[in-house]
Nucleic acid binder design. Structure first.
Lengths: 341, 341
DNA sequence: CCTCCTCAGGTAAGCGCTTTCCCGGGCACC
DNA sequence: GGTGCCCGGGAAAGCGCTTACCTGAGGAGG
């Protein structure tokens, strides 16, 4: 691997001059030298060692993103927004998948700190695990104390600026819609109990129930894993235990699709015999049959805003900025009035 | 930011000793010192500067991946396989999205070289653009000459080990199936003309036609952009121009879904009046209605194998390893015999 | 009791780059 | 013709870490 010294030697100049030419430093350099150096760079196929540069300059330029899993469309969408903004600002993005493992998230914060990341965007649901939350909190604080910027998506519990997805509002919109349509008996397929996303969405649903003078009985709530098969299995369990249900709320689209598959296999027509609604408005939601009624979250936008917050200098006061992202009910074909029994 | 020197000073030892303790070097150290150093690390919230370590150790540990776009399910799946293997080998993965911009791909190779990446996995279709292919080739060769490992997915045109998706075979399987069902007049919605993936899949389709004594007339091939809307628009154009078609082949599932949407909007029943087949077997393929007949590529597996090749030492002879990945026809509900006219 | 070996620990030389500071030559001006 | 300045270019000091090599003390063996 050719080094700057090699280039300088070959061009017959000092490393200082070579460095200045290669990096376009403001210091003026004769054209003759410039050409010789650039020629040497080309001949030696020289590429500066990024680590050495980062060490010498000691300025931080990369940014880190910690998500559950980029392959998941939900995070893919968020990441797309993050990437866009980062690229605009000429920042390299380091993506870390935690696969919903809190321990791994902590490790990644450390790793990003070690790599001198200028900012960390932490996306994905928080965990109802006080010891983890505390640990994460202190790690993030340490990171900020050493000059790092933090923006979280969701995770109101942590330090740093935040973009808040409208999980509670979304749940409310969904519940409201069901009551409006006339449903009284509906089951809920929630995500993992441990995730704040799950509980936030449930809270919204409960608020809607409450406003309509109802409650969500615990026996009509199933906790699954946000995956298609989990949705299908929970729907089966729910239907067997509570035959009078007229609607099923899945707290994300992936599970809702599992629900649709199960209903199809049982020959239950949607929405005539059963209403199904999802959450997130993943792209596939409109392509399944019947197209899914769901709640849209501006995911890419949320990612972009989080990245923007993270790239801005910290708020003047020691205060954190919190931006709320909206939620929008998308009515499609999977919802309708309850069947006549 | 605390440095190793700070830790050493605080623990009252030399930086060398501190370094040895922190990195668990084989050199024996007294327990008393070890404890003092670890205490200092904790108190100062010390994290070693990864760049300085990389510089000093001058061993390469990160690996790079260049894909079109991780948010795309196709690449998400490949990336998942890559990540799994990389994580097993304790490698940090740097993901780069080229967004199908050849120039950006070249830049990323440079960037990964600058970051001392030990290996690069280049995934995603090649381009029918000789000048780009040459440029990429020479960049990759330079990278390999300086000790980097390269594995490509697709892209038989480049140096380095390769995992080849069965695009040609997949196209053949699809064509064969249509002829078997009795179709003679089918349209093809291909991807961008510039991509080798497109042409490879078309070649397979042509081979099937040829074996059955037919040809694929150019007027029945539409080139779109591999996106849903492109698929829908092309289907509309195709139907208008060639009303006698009984089947449409979309060269990826995303476009096939667009086709389904268009047919639904025109009230054309699938598969009774029109057969539709896709390519890739994305997860959504089974959840659309009718479920999509398509070709499955073992994407995650291909990613994993590419990463494994890239992490192995280079082949003994100056020879490149090429592994062929399989393709499998998945029959679902969107295909059937042609309508009776 | 002296020598030699062992071994914990320290010293210092880099890794490849940036950047401050310094040097020397040429120019303008008096 | 001398003085002072400006300006292109180089020397060298780090950036934070690793590691080969050295040192000095203690123990074993003669």
């Amino acid at each position: 691997m050719a080094t700057l010294a090699d280039v300088a030697r070959r061009a017959g100049v000092s490393p200082a001059t070579a460095s200045r030419i290669i990096n376009g430093s403001p210091k003026p350099v004769t054209d003759a030298l410039r050409e010789r150096v650039l020629a040497a760079v080309a001949e030696l196929e020289y590429v500066p060692n990024a680590h050495a540069q980062l060490l010498a300059r000691s300025n931080r330029s990369a940014v880190g993103v910690i998500v559950h899993d980029v392959s998941d469309p939900y995070f893919a969408e968020i990441t797309r927004g993050i990437q866009r903004v980062a690229t605009e600002h000429n920042r390299l993005v380091i993506i870390c998948n935690s696969y919903r493992d809190p321990g791994r998230e902590l490790e990644y914060v450390e790793l990003l700190r070690a790599h001198q990341a200028a900012a960390i965007v932490l996306a994905g649901s928080g965990y109802h695990q006080p010891e983890f939350t505390t640990a994460m909190d202190s790690k993030l604080r340490v990171y900020q104390r050493t000059g790092g910027r933090v923006a979280v998506i969701g995770r109101h519990e942590h330090a740093g600026d935040a973009v808040m997805p409208a999980n509670e509002v979304g749940g409310y919109l969904l519940g409201n819609e069901l009551y409006r349509l006339g449903h009284r008996d509906f089951g809920v397929i929630a995500g993992p109990k441990l995730l704040t996303t799950t509980t936030d969405r449930l809270t919204g649903l409960r608020r809607a129930a409450h406003e309509h003078g109802h409650k969500l009985p615990a026996r009509r709530i199933c906790y699954a894993d946000f995956e298609r098969e989990g949705g299908a299995a929970s729907a089966a369990a729910l239907l067997d235990a509570e035959p009078q249900l007229t609607a099923i709320v899945a707290l994300n689209d992936t599970m809702a699709i599992g629900v649709l598959a199960l209903l199809r296999s049982r020959g239950i027509a949607v929405p005539d015999q059963m209403t199904v609604v999802g959450f997130d408005d993943m792209p596939v939601a409109r392509d399944v049959t019947p197209a899914l009624t769901t709640v849209r979250l501006p995911l890419a936008d949320m990612g972009a805003r989080a990245m923007e917050l993270a790239l801005q200098p910290p708020a003047d006061a020691e205060e954190r900025r919190v931006e709320d992202a909206g939620a929008e009910l998308i009515r499609r074909e999977s919802s309708g009035p309850p069947r006549q029994t």
